[in-house]
Design a protein around this nucleic acid. Sequence first.
DNA 1: CTGCGACATGTTTGCGGAAACACGCATGAC
DNA 2: GTCATGCGTGTTTCCGCAAACATGTCGCAG
Lengths: 331, 331
Amino acid sequence: MADVAQLAGVSGQTVSRVVNGNDRVTAATRLKVETAMRQLGYRTNIAARALATGRFRTIGVVMFNLSAVLNVRILEAVVTGAQTRGYSVSVAMVDGPTEKDIRAAVRGLTDRAVDGVIVIEARVLDTPHLQLPEEVPVVIADSRAAHRHPTFGMDEAAGTRAAVDHLLGLGHATVHHVAGPTDSIPAQRRRAAWQRLLKRSGRAVPPPVVGDWSPQSGYDAARRLLAADDVTAVFAANDQMAVGVLRAAAELGRRVPEDLSVVGFDDLDFTPFLSPPLTTVRQDLAAVGRRCLEQLIARIEAPQGAEASASASRFVLPELVVRASTAPPRR
Amino acid sequence: MADVAQLAGVSGQTVSRVVNGNDRVTAATRLKVETAMRQLGYRTNIAARALATGRFRTIGVVMFNLSAVLNVRILEAVVTGAQTRGYSVSVAMVDGPTEKDIRAAVRGLTDRAVDGVIVIEARVLDTPHLQLPEEVPVVIADSRAAHRHPTFGMDEAAGTRAAVDHLLGLGHATVHHVAGPTDSIPAQRRRAAWQRLLKRSGRAVPPPVVGDWSPQSGYDAARRLLAADDVTAVFAANDQMAVGVLRAAAELGRRVPEDLSVVGFDDLDFTPFLSPPLTTVRQDLAAVGRRCLEQLIARIEAPQGAEASASASRFVLPELVVRASTAPPRR
DNA sequence: CTGCGACATGTTTGCGGAAACACGCATGAC
DNA sequence: GTCATGCGTGTTTCCGCAAACATGTCGCAG
């Protein structure tokens, strides 16, 4: 910076002013400085700026794993959004499902210099109310609102209702459920909603079979489920497991949808091309990512009193996509 | 830091020594300092450290998009690896496929303070030899070696050979190809290898149908391909498109594998559960990510003369997984 | 008993930029 | 004509840490 200042015949402070946009600088001096910067290939050192300002223009994202396609979609939305707002994104992965692990990850990130943190899918076992250190603003991408921080997510109950009502409306006596892992919040909520809906309709609530989101676990679950031959409708907590269910049905000679209706969750890109095309629940995860980011940046840039802006609806509504894997039960 | 120093009754420099590990500090003073740090909740300010040392302990990753599952696997490996080595990871997404776009992204990253950059899938249209600014070490995750920077990737030719040889060995007269987009390097290489292999075996080389990696494009391609009824074997450049092929075959009444053999590429987690389970080529992308990271960190930490360590094999060998979507042609 | 090292610790300085303040000059009101 | 005002620019200082060098202390050999 000093070199630029000297070449342009001004003080370093003036260079700083030019770099940071329009403080009052004459067009002439601005031009001189800009020319000098270009000649010298000047790049501002962001460590120095961060040291002086206390801001990093970086946000941290905490994730549990990147195998879950849906979480990646949130990440993608956050990264692209952040980029256009002039922020960069630091990604951290956390191993365990406890609040302690998350806290460690967030600490690692704040040590590492971020202005704010987004936690994607707060899969916490040990506490229902995630509370993180207050050093920087935190926003959580999750489907329950119980955290101490602003939270955005899907309306899991609405998605589940769409699926269950669809099957019930088709005439099925009840709906069996292949659930996600018990330490996953979305899985918990889908399962709870499924149970509540069946009860409310006065249907039998068969014991759910728990999977781990993987196709293999869906397959295993279905093998167990389909041992009984009165099962006519299965709601899987995600599409991957639904694929496993479809496979098990094929192996057991149960035709879908004639003998068995199957509904998934997520609407992954290949689901329309399965045999049969899968009826599933579509979620707009990118919207969740975008909202998290907006909220976070709002908090970062308006340190106090930014609470008011919590107006935007916190939960995105999913949408049932009916394809060919569901039909009325044969009688 | 000054507060800690005062509380511990030592100089700031000694605190710095304790924080940065084992310079020679007495166990006693180390203990005093550590106690003081804990009492005060001291966290080292990494901006200041970066300013003083010129190092950021951050690496940047440039990606084209996060929809491609395989690229995400590389990212995941890089993030976890970096974390254990004490580095954090900054992700940048680049929109366009040209070298200019990539260069802009890398610049953005270096402006943003990274010690090195990993470029995942250098999808470049305008130049076969990607060359990036030399300010920091760059490593490329790609399946061709022509870049000016260390490169790690899959052996696309070997994977393609496994698939094509398998089909030819089964007795198919030739193999049709659903290719990936023309601006993708892996797609180009798979297509070129496929063509070369057919020629070398003296087989007819049918015109490939180009898709965009999506299941939909695979479906469309197969509809076109299967209009002719002498097609007995299809090699799709990725699993997603293979799913589309499977679907099209089902709709057209072609049984797989009796009437049509299909091979995919990637071995996504759900492929064993398709109907029929898909024969495909498995790639260990995590290994690619790990090697890129190792190489990059080696370069970062040994600024000069690190060239010698290019010994590790640059291309990971994929592996054919034979399942139920391939069979000898009916005669 | 002296002197030399080795080692633990303190002091000084600088990394590159921005905030706070100081300064000089032109302008306009009285 | 004098003085407050506003604006562009320069000066000083500090952000928090680590590198380089300086200092003090102790042990041990001669």
